[in-house]
C-alpha cells in the first residue's frame, strides 16, 4: 500500500578528487508521518553512509536543513513526504558555498553578514547591574520579535534571483535584520548611518522586488513589508542627503 519514493539527490564531495557532481537515485518505502529528516537519515544509515546533509533541531526551529526540494528552497525537517509527489529531487541551496552533497556553508555567509550590517545594538549606554531595566512597551517588544524570528536558514537568499545574479547582494535576511534594529529603540543609529550600510545596490536598492524571499520563508516573515519599509525610509534619506550639503562626505 505504501508508496515507493524515488529520491534524486545531488552528490558531490569536493574533498574527493574523483568525485564529480551528479545525481544519485535512492528508493525508499514511505512510512507514516515521514519527513525528509527521517527519509534522509534512513538513506544514510541503510544505503549510503557517506551522504552529507545538515539537520540539527529537526523541529523547524534552527534553520539548519535548508535545501532545494523539488525546485523550491525550504526546510527539509518540516517537509512531509506525504505532501510531495513520489519523485523527489533534492539539491543543495545555491548561493552558499557547497560543503558536500546537500550540505552548504551558511555559517561563513551569515558571519560576514553580521559584520556588514553590524548586527548588534549600537548604544553608548553602559549596563548598570544595579539599575532597573529600561522600560519598553510590550507591543514594541513583540514587533521586534516578529522580525527576530528569522532562523537564518538562507532559503530567502537562495530563492532570490538578484542574489544569484550578484553575490554582493545582501539579501532579504540581512535587510530584515537591519529593519529589526531600525525599530528597536535601544539602537541609537540614525537613518543616515543605516543609509551607509544598506542605501546602495548591494543593499535595499539592489532588491528588484522578486518576492521569492517572502514566498519561501519558512517562518513567514513579512519580508515584502520590511523591504518596502526600508526602501521608503532609505529613499527619503537619499533625497534628504541630496539637499543637505553637510551630509556630502
Amino acid at each position: 500500500m505504501a508508496r515507493l519514493l524515488k529520491f534524486n539527490i545531488f552528490r558531490y564531495n569536493p574533498q574527493n578528487p574523483e568525485s564529480v557532481p551528479h545525481m544519485d537515485e535512492f528508493v525508499l518505502e514511505e512510512t507514516d508521518s515521514m519527513t525528509l529528516f527521517i527519509a534522509l537519515n534512513r538513506i544514510r544509515e541503510e544505503k549510503d553512509s557517506s551522504l552529507q546533509f545538515d539537520f540539527c533541531c529537526r523541529a523547524g526551529i534552527c534553520g539548519s536543513c535548508g535545501m532545494v526540494i523539488n525546485g523550491r528552497p525550504g526546510l527539509a525537517c518540516h517537509t512531509k513526504t506525504k505532501d510531495l509527489p513520489s519523485e523527489i529531487t533534492l539539491l543543495p541551496l545555491p548561493v552558499f558555498q557547497l560543503v558536500g552533497d546537500l550540505s552548504v556553508d551558511t555559517g561563513s555567509w551569515f558571519r560576514e553578514m553580521y559584520n556588514k550590517v553590524e548586527s548588534w545594538i549600537h548604544t553608548n549606554k553602559e549596563f548598570d547591574p544595579a539599575a532597573e531595566e529600561e522600560r519598553m512597551e510590550n507591543e514594541v517588544a513583540e514587533a521586534i520579535y516578529e522580525l527576530d524570528r528569522c532562523v537564518e536558514c538562507g532559503c530567502c537568499v537562495s530563492a532570490c534571483g538578484t542574489a544569484r545574479l550578484r553575490d554582493d547582494f545582501l539579501g532579504a535576511v540581512s535587510l530584515n535584520r537591519v529593519a529589526r534594529f531600525v525599530i528597536d529603540p535601544r539602537d541609537e543609529r540614525t537613518d543616515k548611518e543605516y543609509y551607509e550600510i544598506i542605501g546602495n545596490d548591494e543593499g535595499i536598492f539592489g532588491c528588484m522586488g522578486l518576492l521569492a524571499c517572502e514566498d519561501v520563508c519558512p517562518k513567514h516573515l513579512p519580508l515584502q513589508e520590511q523591504l518596502a519599509f526600508l526602501r521608503r525610509k532609505m529613499g527619503i534619506t537619499a533625497i534628504k542627503n541630496l539637499f543637505s550639503r553637510k551630509s556630502c562626505k
Binding site: D167, G199, D201, L242, C248
Partner: peptide, 22 residues
C-alpha cells in the same frame, strides 16, 4: 560568479537611492 552590475560603475553609492527613486 562574475556579474555585470552597472553601466554607471564608479558612482558613489550615495546615488543608488536617488537612482532607484528615479
Amino acid at each position: 560568479m562574475t556579474v555585470e552590475t552597472s553601466i554607471l560603475a564608479g558612482r558613489p553609492s550615495k546615488w543608488d537611492g536617488i537612482l532607484d527613486v528615479c
